[in-house]
């Protein structure tokens, strides 16, 4: 039989901190896989002779120097994907944690004012 969930356990879940390093790594891995797959899928498609492969995805090179829709570009894309995904994950975790602290602070101040 499962025990009843206490209120403080729900509050623990609500105000639980995001592990910034864990989300950085997880988002980085996901970002790397997405860019590796996105490039590889285009490379594995059969295209007519002299037909450009992935001309639109290649435009990423404007933002990611060294990237191209090629097998060497797959590895470069993987590194960029990891960096961009990781950066996004880190920013999301930090923002999430700060937003919770700010919200908590506001709530504590409000409740203190109400108590007065």
């Amino acid at each position: 039989m499962t025990r009843p969930i206490q209120d403080h356990e729900i509050l623990s879940a609500v105000f639980a901190k995001m592990d910034a390093l864990a989300l950085t790594l997880a988002s980085g891995v996901l970002g790397a896989i997405i860019l590796i797959l996105a490039t590889s899928i285009l490379l594995l498609q059969t295209v007519p002779e002299n037909y450009p492969v992935g001309p639109h995805l290649s435009l990423l090179a404007e933002y990611l120097p060294g990237y191209s829709v090629s097998w060497s570009g797959v590895m470069v894309g993987g590194v960029y994907g990891f960096l961009i995904g990781g950066l996004a994950g880190f920013a999301a975790a930090v923002y999430w944690n700060i937003a919770h602290y700010v919200a908590l602070g506001v709530m504590l101040i409000s409740s203190a004012e109400l108590a007065d």
Partner: peptide, 14 residues
């Protein structure tokens, strides 16, 4: 996880 008795001052990890 380890639910904390004081989720405000000592939050647990999500």
């Amino acid at each position: 996880t380890t639910p904390t008795e004081n989720p405000v001052l000592k939050p647990s990890i999500m």
